[in-house]
Design a protein around this nucleic acid. Structure first.
Lengths: 247, 247
DNA sequence: TATCAGCGATGAGAATACGCATAATTTCAA
DNA sequence: TTGAAATTATGCGTATTCTCATCGCTGATA
């Protein structure tokens, strides 16, 4: 899960950055609107958190520019200003949430969670596919009722697979989901993690859930459902369900 | 835009109902969780606003039940409770926003707008022509319900054909779609892929879908529909239509 | 009808991607 | 600081796909 934070102040926000980092969010932290816009040019984010007062541009204008660039990433505003007109202006510029400083850490985390899952069109924090269950909040993963011990990266990969189940995900997408803009490792590690994930899933009887799509990437499917199709190596249900929940 | 509000208290909320009604939202107002669940059975909403304290069920439990019914409508909680654990619990049950009473009307309206505007514009990822179906997300292709195993390039070609169905596509277009200008192989390769595609489609009864336009390129059509229509649809017509089916 | 360019089909070698093991490096808690 | 776990890098055998050369055929044109 990838977050961009634009904030010049280094107080409570830097604490937030740390907390999020430890929750295995990939956080990029910039100090100016210009830097933020630049990051948006190169990377995709699941959430953008911004101050309203940045040195080079009013935050509200920044939000407007982001939206004008057709970036639909959810935006959370963090600000000391509590007056209603300011809030309304932020929302109408394109913000999705507004949190006033000083903020309560756990509430803010909950809001961040709500915004990120919503950006995938998902309403619940528990995701299921066949025998596999993943809870976005507690980061617990179970297969047929057995809880798996996943490392942070393994979890992140499985998380993305579940958030976008039924879609082919390229290694680029995984890299983007797992790492901050700078110093991404080589693409080849993704298949190492996939390999490890598969083995852990298999240990409790969840085989053939992660399918390789040659030359493209990987896709997560319920093997029980996919089994119905004979001729192809990668089956899928006939007349299958809509891939995205309305939201 | 359709909104369901569950609230037993008739003070500020009834004012909200009025205001929203005037803003051309269609608002249904119920007083109990039971009524709310009943409404969800019969109607679809773009937003659900609920109190946390309802006479028959804790609001948090109501949210959970809604989510369990696979209803992914955004949920806003309105409550007098301001403590962080309560908020976190609401979010984790599946809420998308939490507003404390007494609430500021204009801010709340802005939040409502932020929640509802996201429900627009969900892209359709499935393309169909006759017996042929292609899903852009999962890259699955089926013919008469049989799933095909296509290689990466084969898929890309079929994808372009479907995205621009009914139009003549030149080999240049295919090359550009497949290689994006860098390291392009010989143009002849397109023939090869088209040939392989045709054979795979044929295997499951989809014949004559990809038609050759001599000297120009290829076109995808539903054979059942195209039977009557000659290929005058492209503005490329030079006398009689030079169409030929491969055998 | 002759001629020529475009198309269909095939198969084999080249190129590429993948799975997995293992090794090297980093991180983090004790 | 040290040791264990996690992360990253590398290497290689295997599997799959891509590409090209080739040949026979088709349609356009004069």
């Amino acid at each position: 899960m990838r977050i961009l934070i634009a904030d010049s102040d280094s107080g409570a926000v830097s604490h937030l950055v740390k907390v999020l980092g430890k929750s295995s969010y990939a956080v990029d932290h910039v100090k100016t609107a210009d830097e933020a816009l630049n990051m948006f040019k190169h990377y995709e984010y699941d959430l953008f958190i911004t101050e309203l007062v940045l040195s080079d541009l009013p935050g509200e204008e920044l939000i407007r520019q982001v939206r004008r660039s057709r970036i639909s990433t959810p935006i959370m505003v963090l600000s000391v200003r509590t007056d209603s007109p300011t809030k309304v202006a932020a929302f109408s510029a394109g913000a999705d949430d507004y949190v006033t400083k000083p903020f309560d850490m756990s509430e803010t985390q909950a809001r961040i969670q709500a915004l990120t899952r919503r950006s995938y069109g998902i309403a619940e924090s528990r995701l299921c596919v066949g025998p596999l269950e993943l809870d976005l909040e507690s980061r617990m993963v179970s297969v047929n009722g057995h809880f798996l011990h996943l490392t942070s990266k393994e979890y992140s990969i499985l998380e993305l697979l579940l958030l976008r189940k039924g879609a082919v995900l390229t290694k680029d997408m995984f890299l983007n989901h797992l790492y901050g803009g700078i110093d991404e490792p080589e693409m080849k590690i993704i298949d190492v993690f996939i390999c490890k994930l598969r083995r852990k899933l298999q240990r409790f009887g969840a085989e053939h859930m992660i399918t390789t799509v040659w030359g493209r990437g990987y896709i997560l499917q319920d093997p029980a459902v996919a089994a119905g199709t004979s001729a192809s190596s990668q089956g899928f249900t006939e007349g299958s369900a809509p891939l995205r929940q309305a939201g």
